[in-house]
Amino acid sequence: MISLVALDGEAHVWSADDWLTLRRDHRICGQLTGILAGVSHQTKHNGLPLALLPEETRLLLQEKIARLVDYEALRQKPSGDLKAKFEEYQKHCYQEQVKSHEEERKKKVTEMVDIIVEGKRRKLMGLSTKKAKRRKLDNSSSAEASSSYAEEFELPDRDSIIKEELSKIVPIPEDSALATIPTECPWLDTMTPTEIPYPLPSRRIEWLKTKTFADLWKRGYFITAGQKFGGDFLVYPGDPLKFHAQYIVTCRLPEESIPALELIALCRVGTSVKKAVILATFDTDDGNSEEEETVTYQTLNWVT
């Protein structure tokens, strides 16, 4: 089961594996809020942690896909022992990089040994040809002279060449190694989490958004926040990395009126970005409580 870490009233995902599982297997996108190591000054792409919408969190808990946990140890000031442990972890990561670099270099040398041997042979042949020309042999062609003088040079065998090339490998300087910035605590499995509940919606509009999100999710859609187009949700037929949104969903209570200008703005935005505007509300005829009310939808079109 995936563990969602509670932080400042929101649920976060710090593990890259959990992020991939949520997106690929459960159609939960969330919002990446961290920076990418090494490119911290750019703002186009974000990294872990992943912050989840309240609707996403409630859905995952309801479907028993995840649990919400709190780690008290993560909120405490790091001790001296923990700092030493982290420095040891950094050294281990550096040694892993050195080992990986050496293995990659060995692989390339082994793959290119024939090219290296041929290059050395041609170099020796070139040296012998120059010697032949200097001595000005009278009864031999230059090719024969090259051949005879090439015998003066002993061409190393493959194993010797591989050994020679491997001896040239220089370890990665420690100050040039890639910085290892884990998004998840490396020792999380040694900490004891406390499972905590997530609060239920306190207002009816929150119930509507929660139920709308869950209903659309069960229909097989990907759903993200829709504020950038003036709605509550954007609904996609597939992964947002591959598809454009089809619908802009705005949630309104049955007794709530929509100002004319706001209604016009919603419809015109939907038309300009080629997305259908969907009004989600509670069915006023079922007479059920907030937890049992069903959601109905109405499409809004801009007609010129």
Rank of each mutant, 00 (worst) to 15 (best):
I162A: 04
E165T: 11
K163P: 04
K130N: 05
S176L: 06
C267E: 04
V109C: 06
R268V: 09
I223H: 03
I65C: 11
Y71H: 13
S148R: 04
A177R: 04
L216H: 08
R134L: 15
I248L: 10
A260E: 12
S176H: 11
R122D: 07
A265Y: 07
T190A: 05
L137Q: 05
E72I: 15
P259S: 06
E103R: 15
D239W: 00
M191V: 11
H101C: 04
R203H: 07
C251V: 12
E293M: 15
P259I: 04
S141N: 10
V269Q: 05
K209W: 01
L53V: 01
E174C: 05
R23S: 09
F243H: 13
L279K: 14
L208S: 07
C93N: 09
G38L: 03
A132R: 08
L155K: 02
T43S: 11
D114L: 08
W187Q: 10
G80L: 06
G9A: 05
K163T: 14
L178V: 10
V113Q: 03
K211A: 01
F282H: 00
P182C: 05
D138E: 09
R135N: 08
D114C: 06
K211Q: 08
M191E: 13
L59Y: 08
P171R: 00
A260W: 15
S257I: 00
K77F: 15
S40M: 13
S176A: 10
N288S: 12
D283L: 09
T304K: 15
I248N: 09
A84L: 10
D157A: 03
V249A: 07
L279Q: 07
T43E: 11
E195R: 11
H45K: 15
E10F: 04
A16Q: 05
T21M: 07
Y198Q: 03
K228V: 08
L208G: 06
L253R: 00
R23Q: 13
T304P: 14
L155H: 06
T183Q: 13
N139F: 13
E293N: 15
E88I: 10
K131D: 10
Y89D: 01
K107M: 04
T281M: 11
T210G: 01
L7F: 05
Y297H: 03
T296G: 06
L4V: 07
A265N: 14
N139G: 04
L261V: 15
L266M: 13
L216M: 07
T281D: 12
